[in-house]
Design a protein around this nucleic acid. Structure first.
Lengths: 347, 347
DNA sequence: GTCGTTTGCACAAACGATTGTGCAGTTTGT
DNA sequence: ACAAACTGCACAATCGTTTGTGCAAACGAC
């Protein structure tokens, strides 16, 4: 019932105010000083616009300026601790720059990634942030053919800035922590790495870091200490069970390479008596607060999603989209089980 | 290096093909049959468009058609299990309808909600889905002033369709389950409700349901069995500690009204000996899989985010935006602790 | 051979903004 | 008092689509 039915345009305001559409436009978008519009004219127009409930049609503006005010991001899924945290940072950063964030999940489907990026480009987004892409090359080709700025996050891509987690640093730190906390007699210790796919970008780096720290610290390591059995919990559960079986106990150190693998590991751990954990140090690359509810302490690496996105936007701000690799260190989260060493009370 | 520099337009295609822009347009958007374009002309144009890497400028199209192909959703935060799951469903539903989802989080800030909805409207979104709004009235006014379809989700709003979780049903079911599982002698039992804010939309309904089931089943209930102490874990921890202190044991039944309250409750529970849980049944309204890692079983209600969003889109599809309240039943998740009754092994 | 139909497309006007340019009137400089 | 400079705005083109309308040529019926 208010006004006619459609949103007022600058033409409506122009008519009411007696000014021309161009004057109205420049007043309303702030360019009126350069256009030498009288201050009181501007004020009058602004009042009329407000009273009519005017707001710019951003599609028209976008069409004219060949910019949309939109900034796109694609990621594998929303319902995941890491990615939803990425989304949250992305929003904040986009809004700080007066951009409207458009976040799309592509379910790790290369075709869907391509379609989605094409759609974003058709909306003339000012940049595309590509998080955890499965086919970075294809996306890069599309974006650069359309001359659209793009930045890879979490997984590096070709010929464009990439902001990734510093897996080497993180894995070295976690491994070092595990080794440090291990019982005194480290001579014969055989720490294990479990989970992940060996030629994944992230996993391969972590394995490398794990191996080098173990070699440096313990002086030796064998290949069977790496169990890259994928991400499925069930598989990890079987592998850890088999391992414990062979060793007759838990390994002195265990580097679990993902939450899902950790879930599997836990599935086996619950079958073990409490003392089983006494001589072991557990670390998990990736973070979930439920770690605080476990009966034994876990060192966890939390990927710094905030820093990843902030760094990506910082790069965006520079306007320089030449290739480079920016590493963000993840955070080591100290064990924080709420069972705080009172296990004995539970017996 | 490919082509000139900018994306080709229908004019470019027109020039190459020798057809007029309008012909190209109608071919490329599918309206060519009604316009009596020869099939082979259409085919030729389509091939040229493909070879030039044409894709429509969606801003221009949106401007012309006064529709954008965008559909907006606002929600409090991304990094939350429930809301990120909502996002995931929203995406899927939007894409099914060939709409591009724009999801924005507003951090429970009424001003931000308003600004965001205004922005979405300026982009001519085809509808706004409003999830968990803090100021539904204001948002309704804005949308209806701009004549934009909107649907409230999770928290009802005025004068528009609302799809909400069936709190009454869920809370009745959870309460009933707790009471059923309680030890045989229910005569003197005093189940408790803890967490939430009593005049919240959801909490008030849940309290009402809890109360009525308790009255029906046990024949009586006192006001102090409702401890609506808010959502902060710390507060819940203190309240449950004080309660246990007064009673000298855990209550026979406990209805925990949110994950955060549950976190607080757990903080106290870890100080209790294992036998303390023997005579108690715990339920939590809201779901987190970490429940599977606890030493005692927990009945959890999972809000059905998929069903909520699907129902909202179903309503959207009808094109009928008159007020109505659609209730979605949440799911009761059976206890599934991975400690599967082997507690004794841990002593 | 004439007169309606149909076919196949081109023309041009929108959509709502932005922005380069033009042009009266007023002010300033001398 | 006359040119130069400045003020304050209006005009019109433009961004890339969509879509109502117009108009020749081909076709059909008689």
């Amino acid at each position: 019932m208010p006004r006619k039915k459609q949103k007022p345009t600058i033409y409506d305001i122009a008519e009411v105010s007696g000014a021309s559409p161009s004057t109205v436009s420049s007043v309303l978008n702030g360019s009126w000083k350069n256009r030498r519009i009288r201050a009181d004219t501007a004020q009058r127009i602004r009042e009329i616009a407000a009273s009519q409930g005017y707001s710019a049609n951003l599609q028209a503006r976008g069409l004219r300026k060949a910019k949309s005010g939109l900034v796109g991001m694609i990621l594998p899924v929303h319902d995941n601790r890491f990615f939803s945290s990425i989304s949250q940072s992305f929003e904040a950063n986009a809004r700080e720059r007066d951009l409207c964030p458009v976040i799309a999940s592509t379910l790790r489907d290369p075709q869907e990634e391509i379609r989605t990026v094409e759609t974003l480009i058709s909306y003339a987004v000012e940049a595309v942030f590509i998080v955890g892409a499965t086919d970075p090359e294809a996306l890069h080709r599309i974006c650069s053919a359309a001359n659209v700025a793009h930045i890879f996050v979490d997984l590096p891509g070709p010929d464009a800035p990439s902001v990734v987690s510093d897996n080497i640093h993180g894995a070295r730190l976690l491994t070092q922590t595990i080794l440090d906390e291990m019982p005194a007699d480290k001579g014969q210790a055989r720490p294990y790495f479990i989970g992940g796919v060996a030629d994944d970008y992230a996993t391969s780096r972590r394995i490398e870091a794990f191996r080098s720290v173990v070699m440096e610290t313990l002086g030796g390591m064998e290949d069977d200490q790496i169990i890259a059995c994928g991400y499925a919990p069930g598989r990890a559960a079987r592998e850890i069970a088999a391992l414990c079986d062979r060793m007759g106990r838990l390994p002195e150190g265990l580097f679990v390479n993902s939450l899902t693998a950790f879930e599997g590991v836990l599935g086996h751990f619950v079958t073990l008596p409490h003392e089983a954990f006494d001589g072991s140090v557990i670390g998990c690359y990736d973070y979930d607060p439920f770690g605080a509810f476990l009966r034994f302490p876990v060192h966890m690496m939390r990927q710094n999603s905030d820093a990843l996105i902030s760094a990506a936007f910082a790069q965006f701000d520079t306007g320089d989209f030449s290739p480079r690799l920016i590493m963000i260190k993840p955070d080591l989260i100290a064990p924080r089980t709420i069972y705080r060493g009172r296990f004995v009370e539970f017996g």
